[in-house]
Structures are given as structure tokens and as C-alpha cells.
Design a protein around this nucleic acid. Structure first.
Lengths: 129, 129
DNA sequence: GTTGACCTTCCCCCGTACTGGAAGGTCCAG
DNA sequence: CTGGACCTTCCAGTACGGGGGAAGGTCAAC
């Protein structure tokens, strides 16, 4: 397959595929005599794997690590499990912080309704922050 | 105050203060005859305001808008309220998405415990993704 | 008078995941 | 043999909030 076909099959762009190759997520493709990249169809699966990793909130660097382990012939499951565990812990933190932030902002916001317009004059610091 | 004192008082760095000035968040400071920036102590409050805005999840550009309105002598409260409302809506979306992501990853993760190590061989796509 | 801490401007760099565009080569249909 | 669609490399830019470090000026203490 040429790069355009692969991009279509995998739901991405040629730019992105070249970028993945440059980042080490895709192995350098075979080339036709004229220099075009020539992919085997199984690369579609690899790109899908990358997309699933992204959907799980992993960075390209982390996905690259997993693929590297797999390419060396080892089972990356342990590493993936560790990454997912770490990602879960991060998510819990992020959610906690966002909820706190939401509550803080809601409280700030609700104070607005108690203010007379005149108490909110320009020579005072705005009450909301 | 010189820039180093202001940085210390406001809990930031001289680099950041010059960056804020460049971005229009701080007005160009007075200069001593030798060219040093010379701040009045009330700028500490302005930097604190910026920090509170950041803590509320506003971007520097949004904080800059608020300060600009305030500097023109108007009460920015209405604008701040709008920004906070928009930020609240964003937060709700972000929280929803993160919770979904967490549940997805948890489900992926829990599948791990049902797998025999042998079923997770290297020649198969890792089960977790 | 010299050391050291501080200040100035300047430009480039970090990470993240791409995207845009220029200049040129290739392939196939008409 | 020409047009258009595709491919190649390379360079640069996006948004965000700064950080690093060079080359040079200034100020107070010793």
C-alpha cells in the first residue's frame, strides 16, 4: 500500500504517518524503486493500536515504548498494565482537582449574585478573583 | 522595588515577570536612571491577581482581557462572570470525559486479572489495548 | 579596584502532536 | 506529451507558559 491508502484505511493523514515514522512509532517502510513508501496491510493494525493507546490517554512516547517492547518479541502486557495503572492514578488526581476547581469557581460565581452593581466599581479589585 | 524583589514578593521569577510585561499583563515599569525596572509595591497585588486567575483555570490571554478592562476604568465583573461561566461549562465537559476515560481504562485494566500469562504472548497483540 | 550579585536585551529552547507549504519527482489517463 | 493526482524531503509554524544562557551594564561591599 502507498502512504495515502494506509492513511485512508487507518483514518489518519499522510503527514501524521510520516510523523509517526519519524518518532519511531512506525518502522521505516519499504520503498518502491522510485522511493515511495510501500506498506504491508498489517501496518493498519499498528496504527489502530496507536489510536487505541491515544484513546486511553497515553502519550505517543508511552505508546512507542509499548511497541518497542513488543517489537523486541516480549509481551508488553506487564508494561501496559503499569502504564494504565499510572494513567489511572493520574486521572483520579486530575478529576479530583477539576472537581475542586469547579466548586471554587461555582462559589466565586455565586457571589456575583449577591453583589450590587455599585459595589463592583472599577477602582476596586474585581470581587470574583 | 527591583524586579528580583517583586519576583520574590509575588512568588515567581524575574523571567516570568518580564514575560508578563511582554504579553501586556503588566504595564511597562518605570526605569531607574540606569535602566533597571522600578516597581511600586502595588504591582504585587496585580501579580497575585494573575495567579488567582490562573488558579481558576483562565489563560493568560483571558486574564489580560480582564486587566485591560479594569485598566480602562471599567468594572470587569460582567466579563469575569462570563469567563467564569464559560470556564465552568468547559470544566463540566472535561470532568465528564475524564470520568468516562477512567471507566474505560479501569475496564481494560480489570481484564488483566482474568488472563493467564501464557495467553498474553508476544506474537499476539497485547490484550489490554 | 575588584569581586559578586543583580540587572539589561537578545534569541533560542522545552514538550505535545501535529499541520502547512514549497520545490521537486513519479505515475497514469487521455 | 501534458495534466492532475500522488509521492518525496525539508523548513517552519501552531498553542501554552515560560526557561536557558550569552554578552554586557550597574551597584554595593570589602
Amino acid at each position: 500500500m502507498r502512504i495515502g491508502e494506509l492513511a485512508e484505511a487507518a483514518g489518519t493523514t499522510t503527514k501524521t504517518l510520516r510523523f509517526y515514522e519519524e518518532q519511531g512509532l512506525l518502522p521505516p517502510a519499504e520503498r518502491t524503486p522510485s522511493g515511495y513508501r510501500d506498506y504491508t496491510p498489517d501496518v493498519v493494525g499498528r496504527v489502530d493500536f496507536i489510536h487505541r493507546g491515544q484513546a486511553a490517554g497515553l502519550t505517543l512516547a508511552q505508546i512507542g515504548q509499548i511497541l518497542e517492547i513488543r517489537d523486541r518479541g516480549n509481551a508488553p502486557c506487564g508494561h501496559v498494565r503499569d502504564l494504565l495503572d499510572a494513567r489511572l492514578a493520574d486521572l483520579e488526581d486530575q478529576i479530583t482537582q477539576l472537581v475542586e476547581l469547579r466548586d471554587t469557581i461555582t462559589a466565586l460565581r455565586d457571589r456575583a449574585d449577591d453583589l450590587e452593581p455599585e459595589t463592583c466599581s472599577a477602582d476596586q479589585v474585581c470581587r470574583y478573583l
